[in-house]
Design a protein around this nucleic acid. Structure first.
Lengths: 219, 219
DNA sequence: AAAAACAAACCAATCGGTCTGTTTTTGCAA
DNA sequence: TTGCAAAAACAGACCGATTGGTTTGTTTTT
């Protein structure tokens, strides 16, 4: 029929060992993130993760020495992906609007929405909170993730910190950024726990309006 | 010697059964909160809780049908205590300052610090985050705690919502309150995870200053 | 004496991790 | 190219430890 391969055995593409490694690690990491989102840190057991990945225990053991290493690898993969996305956001916001084109409020609102969508919604948000809370009481996990967390925060700050400057006697740019991040984080936790959207969009819009009165485009 | 009791057996005060019930529930609930703070939701095993409480498994079973009920009872006790404290804060801030005495910024800063101290520090903060995150993936726990969470938020809002009103075209009082709560929450999570204080006090002060420009004392 | 409060042994289920054995890929010799 | 042994990749049974929960029996209050 449609079997050009000489063997009639179950069709299994021949993959190089390097390809296998990449595939397997990717599948395991994705399953780990899915499991963390679905069941939380305490629900993400090896059994659940391996079932989602369709991977045997032995195969897992071949790639990771412990569950901590798998979770840490998954967290690093997700957070490092976020660092790259933060740079994208900076580029998107910087471009698209000719200098002085749109009023600062619109640019700020767009920036806020972009950050919100990519970092404080969906799986990224859920896993972020699970890991952050788990880090509080798990020193080993915290040691592994602390540098990546810090890197993400710095990248996020770089996305907009140097595109605006405080106006008059407004708080320093760094302080405004932290206020913004904390606010988004608290809002995200509210929505993660309570479920649906609780009018967060309107609130972010108000915050953009307030910010617009406090900053001006950097020269 | 100093044993006025007629029996030479280990001195054990005779307590009424009602007293016993109260004591035992209190001890178990306190131990549960301590365990949640120390080990997180996934580290708060029955074994750890009972060891902290110095209570046998059988005694525990006499009072709670499942671990969920114990955790829920502990959460309710803590959150309901917080609701009462929220009212105290409202009273403290309202009194002490004769009408128009201190400038709005000082009153707001004091309010912010009071709320911060009582709700976003120490065991209360840690347990709050553990439970909130656990609720996301535990429907039974969420069903039990959602009403108490909502009650706390309302009580916290009542503490200051009606003492100020937005100035000019500032956001509605309700929106300013949610912005504030979210900001404090995000800041608290930062400190819970990263450990020490990261300049949060200065940031809260800045926020009070911004708020002062947006609200005025209600008539 | 009855009931409530308490203690501790016990249980099945599940956890992370290891062990042994099989299949697939690879490097090299013929 | 083909043959083939070593190595890597993979599968699943197995293990002790720990989990939440139950059961049986003793002490204290009523």
């Amino acid at each position: 029929m449609d079997s050009p391969a000489p063997t009639a055995k179950p069709v299994r593409a021949r993959r190089s060992q390097e390809q296998r490694r990449r595939d397997m690690r990717h599948v395991l990491i994705e399953a780990t993130l899915d499991s963390l989102q679905a069941g939380g840190y305490h629900g993400a057991s090896l059994g659940d993760i391996l079932a989602r990945a369709g991977v045997s225990r032995g195969a897992w053991a071949h790639y990771f020495d412990s569950k901590l290493e798998l979770v840490a690898a998954a967290a690093e993969a997700m957070l490092q992906g976020s660092v790259a996305q933060a740079a994208d956001i900076a580029a998107d916001i910087g471009a698209g609007v000719p200098d002085g084109g749109a009023p600062a409020e619109e640019r700020l609102a767009a920036l806020l929405e972009a950050v919100w969508r990519r970092f404080y919604q969906g799986r990224h948000r859920d896993v972020l909170f699970e890991l952050a809370v788990a880090c509080r009481t798990d020193a080993a996990l915290r040691a592994r993730l602390a540098p990546v967390f810090a890197e993400l925060l710095a990248a996020l700050g770089g996305a907009w910190g140097h595109r605006f400057r405080p106006r008059g006697d407004a708080p320093a740019m760094d302080e405004l950024m932290r206020l913004t991040v904390y606010m988004l984080r608290g809002m995200a936790m509210q929505e993660a726990v309570s479920g649906g959207d609780g009018g967060g969009a309107a609130l972010r819009r108000q915050w953009a309006r307030l910010l617009a009165g406090l900053v001006e485009p950097a020269p």
